[in-house]
């Protein structure tokens, strides 16, 4: 799909993955998340104490929010948010706080099927804030969001970076935070 791509991301850094449609942005994110084994090359994780075991790091310290949010349309927004947050290691209190921060509190009793694309995306993004994991892999995270919520989520990303987090986001529009651009080879 692509070759000759290298990227090193340090704590507190964000990188915007750019490239034409079909360049392999989603595939790269899924490779980092461990779903796709690279034909050549490798993905390595390191913590303050040195290299980390890949499976361990992916299981405990990686968030992936892609085009499919993993939300069940027949369930209430609240139950889905609480499940996603708990499954990734967050608490109920932190999940509800995250929902408040992204302006989801009035929507929590609705079924997911009643939410708009932007509201669904915010619901999926809320788990990033609810359960602390260092590396955020985001696939077009802001595409369905309106201007106000782009700004709100931008602030959340900023805070994540200040706390030593890492963000790798596939985007077409610039991110609302300072981020290195990492173009995928055509």
């Amino acid at each position: 799909m692509f070759r000759g791509f290298g990227l090193e991301l340090a704590a507190g850094e964000a990188a915007a993955l750019t490239g034409a449609n079909g360049a392999g942005k989603t595939s790269l994110l899924r490779t980092v998340a461990g779903f796709i084994a690279p034909a050549r090359g490798r993905v390595a994780f390191a913590g303050p104490a040195g290299p980390l075991d890949e499976d361990e790091a992916r299981g405990r310290d990686v968030h992936l929010v892609g085009h499919q949010e993993g939300l069940k349309s027949a369930r209430s927004a609240r139950s889905e948010l609480l499940f996603q947050a708990a499954w990734t290691g967050g608490s109920q209190a932190s999940a509800l706080a995250a929902a408040g921060e992204l302006g989801l509190t009035p929507l929590l009793d609705l079924e997911v099927r009643r939410l708009s694309a932007g509201q669904r995306r915010r619901l999926a993004l809320a788990r990033l804030l609810a359960s602390p994991r260092s590396l955020w892999l985001l696939d077009e995270p802001l595409a369905p969001l309106d201007a106000r919520h782009r700004e709100l989520f931008g602030e959340a990303m900023q805070r994540h970076l200040l706390g030593g987090g890492l963000i790798l986001a596939a985007v077409h529009d610039p991110l609302p935070i300072p981020a290195r651009t990492a173009p995928l080879p055509a």
Partner: peptide, 17 residues
């Protein structure tokens, strides 16, 4: 199939479980 299509399987896989 449902979990696979709607992305829930990805979420479920990124876990120590």
């Amino acid at each position: 199939e449902r979990d696979f299509e709607d992305g829930a399987l990805d979420l479920i896989a990124l876990s120590p479980t």
